[in-house]
Design a protein around this nucleic acid. Structure first.
Lengths: 152, 152
DNA sequence: ACAAATTACTGCGTGATGCAGCGAACTGAG
DNA sequence: CTCAGTTCGCTGCATCACGCAGTAATTTGT
């Protein structure tokens, strides 16, 4: 029965939520504590990592904050040495927020352990299986993003 | 080059963090807003879902809160109709927190959309591929948990 | 040239959290 | 049985993140 497709599907979705969801949030928290910033700030760093430098307004949208809250978030990240404010040459109202070299290093250091563990896990999989995993992860990322979009 | 194993590994870890991690946190937030509770409260609901009823002290440990903060968290969840306080018959100091039927229903309703999308995504995979995915997800969940344990 | 929109930033109130301390209940040594 | 020590959940107080509303600077459109 454990090999029945339906129970496979159920198990799989259950490992993802709540199983993995809990861990991701927990990991975000401990990484945030390690960097000396809040959980929201780590989310912001991830956004910067994924999409590159952005204005405070754009960051506010992506992490679901008001522009006022984004200003303080950036203040904290600047104080922690993780990001830097750069004036936009094309529009003097705007400010571009970009991660500092030190910020990138400290963030990747915080995730080094997990990356190492994941590499070990992935060593047990063939190239074809890796492609299968990537195919699913990409689809899941897109689906989750779409669901977020729809719900809010 | 995109089929090179090393770049496959890099892409895979990158889709997971920061890619998917961002989405999971965002989804937690919108679900929390929908249920009328905070992000932390949703994390608590996930813990209850995964491990079953627990005392406030145990919940505090799992969501990284003090017992004082846990008390208020449970107050909020009770007020929102998501959980219930049940006296422990064996130890009159203790209180067991368990999800209410209504809480479980509302939570699963909030995730119904994502579950449906994920089912659609998974329809493209064979049974063998599903087993591969489950094998990886399980390993990844365990690795992330271990990493959290070590970091904090 | 000038009004309207956009952008980032600043007081103020609200609320979640940590810290410290409380009473109640359990445990174990004598 | 007694009673000191421990554990458990809960309550003031201070701190800090956030939303809301308003401001100054800049850009855009007419």
């Amino acid at each position: 029965m454990a090999d029945d497709r339906e129970s496979l599907l159920g198990e799989l979705t259950r490992v993802a939520v709540p199983g993995w969801a809990i861990r991701v949030v927990q990991l975000n928290s401990v990484v945030a504590a390690r960097l000396g910033v809040t959980d929201t700030d780590v989310q912001c760093l991830h956004v910067l990592d994924l999409y590159g430098p952005a204005t405070p307004g754009a960051l506010a949208k992506r992490v679901n904050l008001t522009t006022g809250a984004a200003t303080r978030m950036i203040d904290r990240l600047v104080a922690a040495g993780c990001v830097r404010r750069v004036p936009d040459p094309g529009d003097r109202r705007r400010v571009l927020v970009e991660p500092t070299k030190e910020g990138v290093e400290r963030a990747s250091a915080a995730y080094a352990g997990l990356v190492a563990r994941t590499r070990e896990d992935l060593a047990d999989f063939s190239d074809d299986e890796l492609r299968t995993l990537l195919r699913f992860m990409t689809a899941a990322e897109r689906s989750t993003a779409a669901e977020v979009q729809e719900l809010q």
